[in-house]
Design a protein around this nucleic acid. Structure first.
Lengths: 321, 321
DNA sequence: TACGCGAATTTGATCGTTCAAGTCCTAGGA
DNA sequence: TCCTAGGACTTGAACGATCAAATTCGCGTA
C-alpha cells in the first residue's frame, strides 16, 4: 500500500486538498455534505495527517516534553513513573505525544529547552521537582513559552499555572484518622524545616494535634533512630513525612515492643508490600490536570491569570493504622 | 532573534544550501577549508537542523518509541523507570529522542504502531515485557520495521535482536554467595513453572544445589506462607525469585525465630529500604545496548543474523545474606 | 592546445501540509 | 437586468531541509 496523502484523499472525494485540510482543521467552513464525503474517504483510505509536514507549515509539533529523572536513590521511586504514565495517557487523548529528555542540572535543562525548541518545535513543557529559586520557570516565562509545573513554585509568586498535591491535607487526613481511632497522643516524624513539601506535611499534622515531633533527613535508619526516641516520649501513633521514615518507625516500635500505629506518605511499593497505611498522591489525576492546563495555554483560551490546582491526596488504609 | 535556517548559514559562509547540508550529513565530500568555514557559521549563528523539514524529505524522524506501562501493582515498580532513563540517555547521545505511548493490550499497541508510523514517521521501537506468543514482534518483523526487545522472545526463535538480563546467572550468583558463606542447605522460593523469567531464575539456583523449593504467585503474603513451610524443612538460606517473595520469607523467618539468610531479585526500593540482599539488573547498561543494536539497524550496518545480548546481573550485598 | 575526468560546489525539484488569495455560484436588492 | 455579497471551494506559494542532476574548476594527458 503506497503512501496516502491529503492529495490522495482529495482525489478520492472529488474535492481539493484545501477542502480536506479544512475538514480536518476547521470543519465548520465546509458544507455538511462535502464534509461527510471527505470523512468517508479519510476512513476508507486510512489517511493520517503527516505531522512533519503540518509542523513545517504551522510551527507546532503536538509534542510535549518532560524530563525523566534518574531513579530516586531513596525509597520513593516510581512516583514519577506513575505521573508519566498518566501524562502520556492524557496527552494521547488530547492529540499530543510525550517526549522525554534528561538533564543533569537546571543549566543543562535550559540548554535542552533551546535544543528541543529549535530542532523539534516543541509545543510545551511539563516541569517536575520544582524547588526554591528554580531558574527554569523564569527562563520559560521570559520567553513566553507554554509550560506547567507539577509542584508549586516554592518561595516564588504564582506567576504561572501549576498543579500540586495538598500535602498538608494529606497529613491532616492521616492525623484525623488516628484521632478517630482513639489515639490521643500522636507524634510526627518529618524532615528538617525549609523544604516546602516537608513543612506542609508537618503543618497538616500540627493543625489537628500537638504531640511530640522530630526532624531528620529522609531514610530508614535515620527514621528508626529518631522514632526510637520519639516513641519513648509516649505517643501511641506516628504520622511520617515519607514511607522511608515510616518504615524506620515501624522497626523502632518493634524493637521497643510497642504497638505504635504508623502512617507513611506517598503510598510507595514498600507501603503496599509491608502493609503500611500511607497517604497516596493522585498522580494520574494530577497528570490529567497538567494536561488540561496546557491545553488551555496552547489553545489560547487561558484565563489572564494563571490557574493553580491543589489536589487532595487520599489515605490508603492498611494494617499499620 | 529571527529564525536561522540552512539558507542563513549558507549566506553567512558564502556557500550554497546544499554545501551546508553536506557538511552536516556527509562531511567527507566537502573540502576541509570550506567545511571549517561552514562549521564556524553554524556555531556563530547557533543553527540547528529543523527536524520536521529533514523528516519530510528523508522520511526519518530520529524518534524512538517506547511504551510506558501502568505502574506495576506489585513491589517491582521503577524497573521500567530506570530502564527508561537509561534509554533516554543513550538515545540522546546518539542523536535520537524517546517518545512515549501507552496501550492496554497487544492489539491496541499494534494499532498505535500504525498511528506512530504514519503520523510521526517513527524510526524504531523498543519493546519491553515480551511474553510467550507475543504478536508484536511478528507484526513488526513482517513489515521489516527496526525494533529491539528488552527481554528475549520466550518460546519463539531468535529472529530479531534482543537484550536481556541473564536471570539464571543472577540466582546462580546468589546461590554461590550463600555456599561461600557456609550454607549447605539452600532453598528456593519462586513462581509457578511456565514463565520464562521465573524458570530461568529457578534454573540458576538448581544448577548449584538441590535444596527444597516452592512455587507460588508473586506477593509478600504468598511468599510468607510458602516460606513458612519451606523453612521448617530445614534450609538455612533462601534464594527468592523476587523482592516481594523475599520480603515474605523474611517475615516468615522472623515469626519462626529463625535467622534464615534471604536473597531477593531486582534490587527494588524495598530491598534498599530494608537491607535485603538482592540481585540487581544492569538496567542502564541494558538500555545502552538496546540503543547500540538499534543504531546498527538504523544505519544499515546490522549483521545479517540478529544479535542477542545477555547481560550478567550483579549481587548487591546487604544485611540479609 | 584541447580534451576528458573527477572533485567540489550549485541549482532546481520535491516531500505533505496549511496560508493567503483567488474563483465560482447563487441569492437578494436596487 | 445588473450588481453585490457572501458562502463554498480551489489554486499557487511557502515552510526548511535533502535528493538528483547540472555546473564549475583544476589538472594530467593525448
Amino acid at each position: 500500500m503506497e503512501k496516502v496523502t491529503i492529495a490522495t484523499v482529495a482525489r478520492h472525494a472529488g474535492v481539493s486538498r484545501q477542502t480536506v485540510s479544512n475538514v480536518l482543521n476547521t470543519p465548520d467552513v465546509v458544507r455538511e455534505e462535502t464534509r461527510e464525503r471527505v470523512r468517508e474517504a479519510i476512513a476508507e483510505l486510512g489517511y493520517r495527517v503527516n505531522q512533519a509536514a503540518r509542523q513545517m507549515r504551522t510551527g507546532r509539533s503536538r509534542l510535549i516534553a518532560v524530563r525523566i529523572e534518574p531513579a530516586n536513590d531513596g525509597i520513593n521511586g516510581s512516583v514519577l513513573d506513575r505521573f508519566l504514565h498518566g501524562l502520556t495517557d492524557a496527552a494521547e487523548s488530547a492529540g499530543y505525544r510525550v517526549m522525554l529528555y534528561t538533564a543533569g542540572d537546571d543549566a543543562a535543562e535550559i540548554a535542552t529547552y533551546e535544543e528541543l525548541l529549535s530542532s523539534y518545535d516543541l509545543d510545551a513543557f511539563v516541569l517536575t521537582s520544582t524547588h526554591h529559586g528554580d531558574p527554569r520557570t523564569d527562563w520559560l516565562a521570559t520567553r513566553d513559552l507554554p509550560f506547567v509545573t507539577f509542584g508549586r513554585p516554592w518561595g516564588a509568586p504564582d506567576t504561572h499555572s501549576w498543579v500540586d498535591v495538598d500535602n498538608a491535607a494529606g497529613t491532616a487526613a492521616a492525623t484525623a484518622h488516628l484521632i478517630e481511632r482513639g489515639h490521643t497522643k500522636i507524634g510526627f516524624l518529618g524532615w528538617p524545616a525549609g523544604s516546602g513539601v516537608g513543612d506542609a506535611r508537618r503543618d497538616g499534622w500540627a493543625s489537628l494535634t500537638d504531640g511530640p515531633s522530630a526532624a531528620v533527613e529522609d531514610g530508614v535508619d535515620t527514621g528508626a533512630a529518631a522514632a526510637h526516641e520519639l516513641i519513648t516520649a509516649g505517643p501511641t501513633a506516628l504520622v511520617c513525612a515519607s514511607d522511608s521514615l515510616a518504615l524506620g518507625a515501624l522497626q523502632a516500635a518493634r524493637e521497643l515492643g510497642q504497638d505504635t500505629a504508623v502512617i507513611g506518605f506517598d503510598d510507595t511499593a514498600v507501603a503496599r508490600a509491608i502493609g503500611l497505611t500511607s497517604v497516596s498522591q493522585p498522580l494520574a489525576q494530577a497528570a490529567g490536570r497538567c494536561m488540561d492546563l496546557l491545553r488551555e495555554l496552547l489553545d489560547g483560551r487561558a484565563p489572564s491569570t494563571p490557574t493553580q490546582v491543589l489536589l487532595p491526596p487520599s489515605l490508603v488504609l492498611r494494617q499499620t493504622a
